[in-house]
Structure formats: structure tokens, C-alpha cells
Design a protein around this nucleic acid. Structure first.
Lengths: 239, 239
DNA sequence: GCTATTATTCAGCGATTGTTAAATTTGGCG
DNA sequence: CGCCAAATTTAACAATCGCTGAATAATAGC
């Protein structure tokens, strides 16, 4: 078979590529395409709002491939979640450690920045799938059943952040740190969700897609809120 | 038919209560039961994660009643959302106005309190359905398709809050106010979602159900964050 | 080039989905 | 008592759901 034959064949077949492609051809091939399609669809309508056939169609492959590669629909969801959770957790841990080792005295704002920046940078400059992924995480984070998977992957990062925060504000009770993180998480995920609530609310004055604006403000907001909350709890004699 | 006959009949029939009940028997009857059941189920698994039959079973009535009372599944969802949105918006508007009229100089913390307190009070002391309702709102607020209904009902309240905040911090740009509200909304909805993320994260140190703790901290956190953010934007010469 | 293995499609299964037309029961009213 | 309208149940419809066994095509290694 000449090169020409191969090309002509590839063009002529309607359902392209039955059979086995190269093994280590990650991303371009069916498994990666399924993950991409599922990621986007799950982010739009959630787990129950998407059918396996919709995912397969969007990926341009047959439904059965989902069950071959992921066992079932839940397995596909887990695959979507894990694919980006692992590198995110890794880069965020590096960011937090680099911050601690690269500075003399840690600050609240610095710690929060080291925690938030990896996500914002990925959303801004990573491949477009990251935006869908964060929208998906924002959704299931506000879901009763989503807790399991959220905690399994992300709790380590959070505890690392909290340890640093405690060094930034010595004597601050753990309890206050956890509450503060909870508030931070809510704000951050809404900012990363891509829902553009603020655009509509402000009639275009604020643009949710302008993540640089969001980053700067989220930083001073969370840091300021954190300090104010700890101070108030102290003054009230509760902490 | 004697009274006795009626009682005996009511006891003997397995599928209770075919036929027409009193008209203005709100809440106890099928329509209200359907709303209650749907509210709870939608809050747990979202719109797509619940089937009309599950709702009907939970309400103890036949599926067809959903379509009689609400036209279709979306109508049922709208019914669930609106039933509590209207009184909530009303009580929150009253709270905001009462605060403005009852105080000499408005403060950020006071305005935020007037906005948040009605929700926390309803969750704490209102009928249990309010908890499900807030969990539902928290979910769809982080959803792409949820924006429509959220804005339709709640934007008025938000604009009222923002007007007051602008009086509390004269000269603060609208843009900053909208960003601040966005952050506040994220934190607040996560706190009201009932997901108990903070419980597990803090290993029981914080209890999400302790809404009094959450209220106090949310207040100082949001007020402090708001002021810090505005200050930072001013100092950076951007505002 | 043969063969084993892997990736993919095909065709369909039983169960469940949202929805509806029609029958039936009930309460209110004259 | 009998009638009317409202509320509820019955019984089903076509479509779609998640999923699977078997056939088939492409590749890798020999």
C-alpha cells in the first residue's frame, strides 16, 4: 500500500477508523476524545443530564467504546475527574512549597495566591478543557454526592494551604482557618465556574472571563476577610 | 352514609384518597406534597437526576398528577423554585429597608447582615423544606443553565443590597461592589448548601449545621474582604 | 506474511423515561 | 338526591436509557 492509498482510504471511509490505532497516541484517539467530550458535556448539564450516547456522538465514536474503556458511565465520570485532578493537585502542591521556600516570612495573601494562581493560570493559559473542568468541579462541589470525590483528591492541597496560613498568622485557631477556607472555596469556585453571573448582574461592568481582574480582587478580598474574621472572633472572646 | 361508614371506608382503601379534596387545602394535599417531594429530591440529585415517578412515589400520588398540576417536569421544577423564591425575596427586601430606615449611618457589615440574615433565619427556624431549597439554589447557582432563573428572581434583592453598600462606603465604584457581591454569593451559598464540606475537612472541628457560627464569621469575613478589596484597588490606582 | 491482541463498530437487549388519553372518584351545590 | 367540575388513578405510548455479546478491522511482534 502506498502513501496515497492510505490517504484515499482514510478519506473515503465514513465511520473512520475501525480497528486498533497506536497505543501511546494519547489525546487524539478515542479514549482521549471521549474524555474531552464527556468533560464538556458534564460541565454543561451535570452527570445525570448527559447520556452516554451524547458523549459518544460528540466524540465521534460508538457508544460501546465508553464501556470498553471505562466500564460504565460512572467510570467515565471518574476518568474525566481524575485526568485533570492529578496534575492540578501536583502543580498546586509545587506552588505552595515554592512559595514557602522562596520567601522569608509567609503572608496570608501570599499563601492564598500560591493556592489560587495555579487554577487561574490553567484556566487562562492551559488547554480549553480546563475551563470545562473547573465548571464541572464548581458544580459537583455544591452537590451533596460530590463531597466524596472532592475530598479524596483535593483535601491534601487544602491542608497544605492551612498549614501555611497558620504560620502566616501565628496563634490563629485551626477552626477559624477551616471556616476561612470554606468561604474562600465558595468564592473561588464561583469565579472559576464560568457562569458569568457577575456579567449579567453588573450589566457588563464586570466580566467573569477577565480572570486577571478576578484573581487580583479575590486575593485581597479573601486575605482581608480572613484577617478581619480572625480579629473579630478574637475580640468577641470566642477565640 | 354515616360518619362511621366514612371512617371505615377511609381506612379500608389501600391507595388513599382518590377524588377531589377541598380546594384551599394547601400544603397537605397532592400539589403541595408533590412540591415538597420534588424539592427534597431535586436538592439531592439535581433536575436531571430525579425522575417524575420518583417524585410521585415520594409524594404518595400517581405520576400523572404531576402533569395535571404542573404541565411537565420543568413546570414542576419552576413550581418548586418559585414557591419559596417569592416569600424569600419579599422578606429580604423588608429586611434591607428596615435596616436602612432603622439606623443613622449604614455600615457594610450591617448591610450584609440585613441581606444574609433572612436566609439563615429561614434555614434555622423555617420549615425544614427551606434547607432543601437552599441546597437546590446552591446547586443551580453554579450551573450554566441556572443563571436564567436565578437572575429573574434574585437580582432585585442584590441591587438593593448594592445600593446600600454604596452608601456605606461612599465613592466606591459600582464595579467593585459587583465583584464583592459575587464573592459573597459564592461563600454564602456554599455555607447554606448543607454539604458539610467543612465538617469533613476539619474533622469535626467546624460544623456546617451550626449556622450561627457560620453567620457571624461570614459577616466579618465578607465585610472585611469587601473593605480590603476596595482599598487595594484604590491604592493600585485602578479605581 | 502470519498471528495474537487490541480497538472499534454493529445490532440489539430489557428497563426506564417523560408524557398522555381516558376512566373514575370525590366534593360542592342546587 | 343528582349533577358538574375538579382531582386523582389507570393503563398505556413511543422514545430513550445504560449496557452487552458478538463480529470486525487495525496494529504489533514474530
Amino acid at each position: 500500500m502506498t502513501k496515497l492509498d492510505h490517504k484515499a482510504l482514510a478519506k473515503s471511509r465514513k465511520k473512520p477508523g475501525r480497528g486498533r490505532p497506536k497505543q501511546s497516541d494519547e489525546g487524539v484517539k478515542a479514549r482521549g476524545r471521549l474524555l474531552d467530550a464527556a468533560e464538556s458535556l458534564f460541565a454543561e448539564r451535570g452527570f445525570y443530564g448527559v447520556t452516554t450516547r451524547q458523549v459518544a456522538d460528540a466524540a465521534g465514536v460508538d457508544v460501546a467504546l465508553i464501556y470498553y474503556h471505562f466500564e460504565n458511565k460512572s467510570g467515565l465520570f471518574d476518568g474525566v475527574f481524575e485526568r485533570r485532578a492529578r496534575p492540578l493537585v501536583s502543580v498546586r502542591r509545587d506552588s505552595l512549597r515554592a512559595y514557602v521556600e522562596g520567601t522569608g516570612a509567609v503572608t496570608v495573601e501570599g499563601a492564598v495566591a500560591a493556592f489560587i494562581n495555579p487554577m487561574i493560570d490553567l484556566s487562562l493559559h492551559g488547554d480549553p478543557g480546563w475551563k470545562s473542568y473547573f465548571a464541572l468541579v464548581a458544580q459537583i462541589d455544591n452537590t451533596p454526592w460530590g463531597g466524596e470525590i472532592i475530598h479524596r483528591f483535593f483535601d491534601d492541597n487544602v491542608h497544605e494551604l492551612i498549614d501555611i496560613l497558620q504560620r502566616a498568622v501565628p496563634g490563629s485557631p485551626k477552626k477559624e482557618l477551616y471556616w476561612a477556607y470554606n468561604f474562600l472555596a465558595g468564592s473561588m469556585m464561583l469565579a472559576l465556574s464560568g457562569t458569568e453571573r457577575v456579567d449579567r448582574l453588573s450589566e457588563g461592568l464586570c466580566r467573569a472571563k477577565d480572570l486577571e481582574s478576578a484573581r487580583r480582587r479575590l486575593l485581597s478580598y479573601c486575605a482581608g476577610g480572613f484577617v478581619a474574621m480572625i480579629t473579630a472572633e478574637r475580640l468577641s472572646g470566642r477565640a
